[in-house]
């Protein structure tokens, strides 16, 4: 069995901005451990010399010209917002500065 603990699952939930009930924490600890156990086949491999692949194809230097294109209408943009004020998106108070 994977060594995944309930505390780790709680920490991950915090990172992911999810609130899990005690029952969910228990359930997820078991289920995630089971999935991670399945990954054990992979973890036992010695792949030290293998290059990681993040992209299936080796395209490079895909760029666009620095030419202005139309932006959206602000009314349309703010119509999507759960809350807006004074041309801006409104949110409840922010507890700290950006990291």
């Amino acid at each position: 069995m994977s060594e995944l603990t309930r505390a780790e699952v709680a920490h991950v939930a915090k990172l992911a901005r999810l609130r899990l009930s005690d029952d969910e924490l228990d359930l997820f600890t078991v289920q995630l451990a089971k999935i991670l156990d399945h990954a054990a086949d992979m973890q036992s491999l010695d792949l030290a010399d293998v290059v990681a692949t993040a992209h299936p194809y080796g395209l490079i230097n895909v760029v666009r010209d620095d030419v202005v294109r139309p932006s959206l209408e602000r009314d349309e943009v703010l119509a999507m917002a759960p809350d807006a004020e004074d041309g801006r998106f409104a949110v409840p108070r922010i507890m700290g500065e950006a990291p």
């Binding site: 991950v12 999810l18 997820f28 491999l45 290059v51 692949t53």
Partner: peptide
Amino acid sequence: KRRIMLGTYALSAGYYDAYYGQALKVRT
């Protein structure tokens, strides 16, 4: 939620190499 949790865990400090990093090598 389960997959967000799993993915967050696989990328988080201390687990990246063992899980996400290793998976990318398997992908190769």
